[in-house]
């Protein structure tokens, strides 16, 4: 019980951050035609900022279901890495139900909390954080869909960059230490701009193509040395 409460406390700042970002995600969801309930349901079940952003854009483009599968794989493939890393932080005897639950709620923030524990992550600590932050994420999305139409355009315009602010906060600090990442970010910005302005390829397709091409290029041009993978 103590572990759960400690998780809950550490989950407070995550929950507030989630709420703001989910709100901005809700504005995008509204443009894709989702109702507040559908937005709530999506956020409750999917728990992924970049993934949901890509998915809402795809829904707006009315893409085939199979393409949606591809988009979800590409925009969430970083969780494969985290899932590997997390598997090392879960005590070997841990029941399958805990593995499934921790996997279901695997996000950048919960991951950071989980791996900060020593030597193994106690699932109940994670559940404490999740019990506050996950409802924030889901209700933030629903509220974004509702309020996106009510708030003055100036405010909506300002809030709509919250999601991108969060992306920057994730990608920029590692780029300071790793010049290869910095270089790939610049290449990504450039290619993304060129493809979106000078071709008719859809936004979700651009994400898939560029992620595969540029990441492969990165792996070929800048092979990592040793243990850079433990984030």
């Amino acid at each position: 019980m103590y572990t759960f409460r400690k998780g809950l406390k550490d989950g407070l700042p995550i929950g507030f951050g989630y709420f703001a970002v989910a709100f901005s995600l809700g504005i995008i969801a509204a443009q894709a035609g989702l109702t507040p309930f559908q937005g709530f349901l999506t956020s409750l079940l999917v728990n992924a900022s970049a993934g949901e952003n890509a998915a809402f854009i795809a829904i707006k483009e009315n893409v085939p279901y199979l393409q949606m599968v591809l988009i979800m794989i590409v925009s969430n493939i970083r969780y494969v890495l985290m899932s590997f890393a997390l598997s090392q932080k879960i005590a070997p005897k841990t029941h399958m139900i805990h593995r499934l639950l921790l996997g279901f709620f695997l996000t950048d923030e919960y991951f950071a909390l989980a791996i900060s524990q020593d030597p193994y992550c106690n699932p109940y600590y994670s559940y404490g954080a999740i019990s506050f932050a996950a409802p924030c994420w889901a209700s933030g999305t629903a509220l974004g869909i509702i309020m996106g139409n009510i708030l003055p355009p100036r405010i909506v315009s300002a809030l709509s960059v919250a999601l991108f602010g969060m992306f920057l906060a994730i990608i920029i600090p590692p780029a300071k230490k790793d010049k290869a990442i910095a270089c790939l970010i610049v290449i990504s910005f450039l290619c993304s701009y060129l493809l979106s302005r000078f071709t008719t390829i859809s936004e979700s397709m651009i994400t898939i193509i560029l992620t595969i091409v540029i990441s492969s290029l990165g792996a070929l041009l800048f092979p990592t040395k040793g243990e850079k993978h433990e984030e």
Partner: peptide, 10 residues
């Protein structure tokens, strides 16, 4: 490299 590229492109 995938996470950085995906987030940058988006």
């Amino acid at each position: 490299y995938v996470p950085y590229v995906t987030l940058s492109v988006m």
